[in-house]
């Protein structure tokens, strides 16, 4: 699986590896890092809605808005 895709367009129920994170906001990138969301780490898309999605990072569940899921490349 070599295709790069935004988390926004990823498939529900699948676990991906984070390839790149670029929110154009250094503090936000650093915050995601501290949650365990950084290049090479697994991320699972649990469900997707119009404006947001729920993901699993490490052992926690988070609700992300589309602005964030656009910025996470898997």
């Amino acid at each position: 699986m070599d295709e790069r895709t935004r988390l926004l367009d990823a498939e529900v129920g699948k676990t991906y590896r984070v390839r790149e994170i670029n929110t154009e906001d250094d503090d936000m990138n650093a915050f995601l890092f501290r949650l365990g969301c950084y290049t090479g780490e697994p991320i699972t898309l649990i469900s997707k809605k119009k404006n947001s999605c729920i993901v699993v990072i490490k052992d926690g569940r988070y609700n992300l808005d589309n602005l964030l899921s656009e910025a996470i490349i898997v």
Binding site: F31, Y62, D65, L67
Partner: peptide, 9 residues
Amino acid sequence: RKSFFIMEL
């Protein structure tokens, strides 16, 4: 400025 939203469930 982008306003991101992330909330642990």
